[in-house]
Design a protein around this nucleic acid. Structure first.
Length: 424
RNA sequence: GGAGAGCUGUCCGAGUUGGUCGAAGGAGCACGAUUGGAAAUCGUGUAUACCGCCAAAAGCGGUAUCGAGGGUUCGAAUCCCUCGCUCUCCGCCA
């Protein structure tokens, strides 16, 4: 959410900046008139309330002195009706305004490349050597089927499409990655470890920006106003919702493991095979709450923390800076880390690292004070996958596949795999 | 699932025959005095959002907020209703 006053005073400038996002801004057009009407109603209503408060005091005096208060009471009864009428309209206006404010995307940072879609994203850097194979390589679902470590068919029977059973060393590999990543970020990168709820309420989903606009992407619990989390970002960022932190509390650095649940509405037919696009997957997520002046430096660091995982696993990747048209709703700046997938001959997203500036903090009411008696300011929030585990398994199976169908386990994972070197 | 108790400012905690209560008191914190320095002591200050005045900040004025929402009333922290959460006991359960 943007700052209303800032929006009011810089309407044209903001409109221009948002135009690059390619979002539908027609609701945004009504902001000016609604904002004006809102303030007019507040003025009217509050003037009457001030009067009512004053007369009510007089009434109490009159009553105590056993004088006749009836004329004043009668007058205030009428004032009360007027107030109710103003407040009724005010409430309607504010609800509309709220919807508009919640539907305006974040303003891109000046360093974000201008562009329309993913074609215009800019490669920032590349790491690692793309592996060469002297045999015919297989996609990860075939590798996994031969090794009997993933079972999509039975998951389809038990649940439905886009679900999977991990088995044997496949399950072990997933678990090894979870522990490896959590250890790395907690021990080496200084994050506080967290295991969050997988179900959150509506306010949390609004706080981080999944709602109200993207309701169709989420799984909702029937009969409850609760949602399955699409990422640990939601519970972890909302951990400090409606709180005022002190300056020495910052930065807050959390690393969280969680399952993630996505309806994948609108992606029917895409990545229908394999682990790439599941309704449920595991992820280790990095979340930081920082002072505003630190957030862009933090974005670079946080992205580096995610990259470190791939470096230690020896998986080739590249870092892309998302252009204005591909930024997503909430981010002011976003890097995607893409890992090499040999069978598809492309880099695929495995992490997304974003700086939301105060966009989420304003929605979620996360603030801090620089001085004990200072004015509260909004923190800046950031997060990034560190990493999506299912896609990491995908990358390991494919990049480390051998001619005989076995898969070499990256060295750093072997202690987590009971010392095993190969899955065969 | 049943029965009961509670939810007040950063924290603790008063206030429930409706009126001068944004809210006593205490603690904490900030600033100042005192001190060689500290402790102790004394003094002052210490919520948030919004609206208005101001170019802006400071400041001033106003409105709202005592778990959330609704209701009664000229007026509600105080009365009524719904919901949420916490705690205790019983039941059930991993």
């Amino acid at each position: 959410m943007l700052d209303m006053k800032y929006l009011r005073n810089n309407y044209e400038e903001i409109k221009e900046k948002l135009a690059h996002r390619g979002e539908d801004l027609h609701e945004f057009e009504h902001f000016g008139e609604l904002d004006e009407r809102r303030r007019e109603l507040i003025r009217q209503s509050e003037n009457l309330k001030a009067k009512r408060n004053e007369v009510s005091k007089q009434i109490s005096v009159l009553k105590r002195e056993k004088k006749d208060a009836e004329p004043a009471i009668k007058e205030m009864r009428e004032v009360g009706e007027k107030i109710a009428a103003y407040d009724k309209e005010l409430k309607e206006i504010e609800e509309k305004l709220e919807q508009i404010m919640l539907s305006i995307p974040n303003i891109p940072h000046e360093s974000v490349p201008i562009g329309e879609d993913e074609e215009d994203n800019v490669e920032v850097r590349k790491w690692g050597e793309i592996p060469e194979f002297d045999f015919e390589i297989q996609p990860h679902w075939d590798i996994a089927a031969n090794l009997n470590i993933l079972d999509f068919e039975r998951a389809a029977k038990v649940t439905g499409s886009r679900f999977v059973f991990y088995k044997g060393l496949g399950a072990r590999l997933e678990r090894a990655l979870m522990n490896f990543m959590m250890d790395l970020h907690a021990d080496e990168h200084g994050y506080e470890e967290m295991l969050p709820p997988y179900i959150v309420n509506r306010n949390s989903m609004v706080g981080t920006g999944q709602l109200p606009k993207f309701a169709e992407d989420a799984f909702k619990i029937e009969e409850w106003d609760y949602f399955l989390i699409p990422t640990a970002e939601v519970p972890v960022t909302n951990y400090h919702r409606e709180e005022i932190l002190s300056a020495e509390d910052l930065p807050k650095k959390f690393v969280a493991f969680s399952g993630c649940f996505r309806s994948e509405a609108g992606s029917a037919g895409r990545d229908t095979r394999g682990l790439i696009r599941q309704h449920q997957f595991n992820k280790v997520e990095l979340v930081q709450l920082v002072k505003p002046e630190d957030s862009y430096e933090t974005l670079e660091q946080l992205t580096g923390h995610a990259e470190k995982v791939l470096q230690l696993l020896g998986l080739p990747y590249r870092v892309m800076s998302m252009c204005t048209g591909d930024l997503g709703f909430t981010a002011a700046k976003k890097y995607d880390i893409e890992v090499w997938i040999p069978s598809q001959n492309v880099y695929r997203e495995i992490s997304s690292c974003s700086n939301f500036e105060d966009f989420q903090a304003r929605r979620a009411g996360i603030r801090f004070r620089r001085e004990p008696n200072g004015k509260p300011e909004f923190v800046h929030t950031l997060n990034g996958s560190g990493l999506a585990i299912g896609r990491t398994v995908t990358a390991i199976l494919e990049n480390y596949q051998q001619k005989d169908g076995s898969v070499v386990i990256p060295e750093v994972l072997r202690p987590y795999m009971g010392g095993k070197e190969v899955i065969k």
